[in-house]
């Protein structure tokens, strides 16, 4: 049964919470049981931010993740802090544009995504987080991208609406980068 436990971590401002909320909304739209739990407190003010997302086929007991199926790492400090939380055989999605450290774990799969460069090539570096969403879905195609598009259309309103297509393109690019890597795994 579906039971994805995803930790997303990076600096405040990288769209870490947004990655989590997008996956959570998408899961809800596809009738999964979902929960999203942010880190809150002093660490949000300038340091690392993270959130826990659970997407499940059955009611969720704890929204806190003790053993993650996937961890999305957006910056160097988050790698050291969270690589230990991935279960054996789980996935580390690493934003290689900003993370130059390598994981110490050898019992997990590391997928490197130059998310900031990909987003810059689209002319929209802010969408680096969306590239990481795509990378995750490239490995775990549990939510249709068309569902995420519906979420973005609903949540990005007003002046933000114009950026929906770029975000969707960033997700597609992330999927491609991930799939080209896992073909080699």
């Amino acid at each position: 049964m579906l039971n994805e436990r995803i930790i997303i971590a990076g600096f405040g401002g990288q769209g870490v919470m947004t990655i989590g909320q997008l996956l959570t909304y998408g899961g809800m739209y596809e009738n999964m049981h979902v929960s999203w739990l942010p880190s809150y407190g002093p660490e949000m003010r300038g340091g690392t931010a993270n959130c826990h997302v659970v997407l499940s086929g059955e009611p969720i007991s704890s929204p806190i993740i003790n053993s993650a199926t996937s961890v999305i790492i957006m910056n160097n400090p988050s790698l050291g802090k969270f690589e230990g939380d991935v279960e054996v055989g789980g996935d580390l999605f690493i934003n290689s544009s900003l993370v130059d450290l390598k994981p110490n774990r050898t019992d997990v799969e590391a997928i490197y995504v130059n998310a900031n460069e990909v987003a810059s090539n689209l002319g929209f570096e802010k969408a680096a987080n969306m590239v990481m969403v795509g990378a995750y879905l490239g490995r775990h195609p549990i939510i249709d991208i068309s569902t995420l598009e519906a979420v973005l259309v609903e949540t990005m309103t007003g002046s933000k609406a114009a950026f929906v297509p770029l975000n969707i393109q960033a997700i597609h690019d992330g999927v491609k980068i991930c799939q080209s890597q896992i073909a080699n795994i």
Binding site: Q21, T24, M28, V34, S35, W36, L37, P38, Y40, I60, P63, I64
Partner: peptide
């Protein structure tokens, strides 16, 4: 508690 307050659920 803090989790009930902070978490998102449908």
């Amino acid at each position: 508690d803090g989790m009930i307050g902070q978490m998102m659920e449908p």
